[in-house]
Design a protein around this nucleic acid. Structure first.
Length: 397
DNA sequence: CGTCCACAGGAATGACGGGCGG
DNA sequence: CCGCCCGTCATTCCTGTGGACG
């Protein structure tokens, strides 16, 4: 094929695409406009304004459910302040850490070190060593370091608040340089479990992000769709449908944007002229399949078996004990040594955290206290993903 | 109104593999 | 290469508890 033909073919293909710029719909895209978050932007800017003078702002604690714009607003405001400060005064460094991904003390510290230009090995050092390296790096830098700890509840759930405690006290130990912490969480109950000393320090200022309504989601989607799609490629009602679905799931803008993007991708794959509501419906299924297989992939082997046991029970178990019995049967069928009930209890907790199962503690009075466990995704999806696993196809049949 | 069930979930511990500094 | 430290999966032992039953 001649280069000319390649170019022509590619141009033809692109001109038919429903997208002009699909990046705009990606979750990590920081838009120029953040509809219905004006108040939060204003507040956060006020709080962080001391950065302009090279001074340390108060620590900030931000609450709000997933997809309510916490991360986007925080990054947006910090980016803008950084641009403003550029060449105008003392600079500052900002570090963004997602604690869902970096969920150990070590990894969080390594992230901070990295942003300060201090290379830290993957593993091998003691956390105390990394901590003192971070401190040294901050003193060398000498300015304000803003540390954003997103989804901070993950870190605390797994490793307690020790790191937080140390970070909130770090300013007293530093001879030069200052640290401001921005903690972000979507788990409100998490606050109660936090040490009072940490909370009073971390929560010097608090900021709340309410969920979006369906109408607000529609605005957000319209805004982005204009940049993402070629004009006239969205069938009527598509945006409203995405907004309605996401509004039902606690006003999650990320979900709404994902839905729209994947629907577009499906339409494009089929060479369709327009994105329709039907594409959105299929996008829902595809997204569910993706998230479920992603989650299951990271699960320990016995975690998968526990999930299989739940499937055998029709997607819900009245008690951990019931589930454990079903799990043991699966182990027997596979000739695998079962783990203890204590361990299964933790695995259930893990599945709950990952959001593919809900586990509510209930008390049945005289008949004990247990957890009622139910699948939150469609059993077919889980079955499809689990069937890939060695020997499980037969067990599930 | 106390008891007592069926677990929840914390704490300590260990085996294991991976990775680094010295 | 050794010794140390890490994260992960798992065990053992344990204390705590909401509320129906007696």
């Amino acid at each position: 094929m001649l280069p000319d033909d390649i170019v022509l073919e590619e141009l033809m293909r692109l001109s038919k695409s429903v997208f002009v710029n699909r990046e705009v719909l990606r979750p990590d895209y920081v838009p120029e406009k953040l509809p219905h978050r004006e108040e939060q932007i204003r507040r956060l800017t006020q709080i962080l304004a001391p950065l302009v003078r090279g001074e340390r702002p108060s620590n900030v604690f931000i609450y709000g459910l997933t997809g309510t714009g916490k991360t986007a607003v925080t990054r947006y405001v910090l980016m803008k302040i950084k641009e403003y400060v550029e060449g105008r005064g003392p600079g500052f460094i900002y570090v963004y850490v997602n604690c869902r991904h970096d969920d150990t003390t070590y990894r969080v510290l390594a992230r901070i070190a990295d942003a300060l230009g201090e290379r830290v090995p993957f593993t091998g050092l003691s956390t105390a060593e990394v901590f003192s390296r971070v401190k040294a790096a901050i003193e060398r830098f000498g300015g304000v370091v803003v540390v954003v700890l997103d989804e901070i509840d993950f870190l605390v759930k797994k490793h307690g608040d020790e790191l937080l405690y140390r970070l909130t006290r770090i300013n007293g130990e530093l001879r030069r340089g200052k640290v401001t912490l921005i903690g972000i969480t979507n788990d409100v109950s998490f606050v109660e479990r936090l040490d009072a000393r940490v909370m009073s320090s971390l929560g010097e200022v608090e900021l709340v992000f309410p969920p979006y309504t369906a109408e607000q989601l529609t605005d957000i989607l319209k805004e982005r769709a204009e940049k993402a799609f070629r004009p006239g490629t969205l069938a009527p009602g598509v945006i409203e449908y995405c907004a309605a679905v996401a509004a039902k799931e606690h006003g999650d803008a990320r979900r709404a944007l994902d839905l729209l993007r994947v629907a577009g991708e499906i339409a494009e794959r089929e060479g369709a002229e327009k994105v329709t509501v039907d594409h959105v419906k299929r996008a829902r299924q595809e997204i569910e399949l993706d998230t479920v297989s992603e989650v299951i992939k990271t699960l320990p082997y016995h975690g998968k078996l526990v999930l299989a046991a739940l499937l055998v029970l029709g997607g819900k178990a009245q008690s951990t004990g019931d589930l454990y019995i079903a799990y043991r049967q699966i182990c027997r069928a596979l000739g695998t040594e079962p783990v203890t009930q204590r361990r299964v209890s933790d695995l259930v907790g893990e599945l709950d955290m990952l959001g593919i199962v809900t586990a509510r503690v209930i008390s049945k009075g005289r008949y004990g206290k247990t957890r009622v466990i139910a699948l939150t995704v469609s059993p077919e999806t889980v079955k499809k993903v689990l069937s890939v696993e060695e020997g499980l196809r037969e067990v599930l049949a």
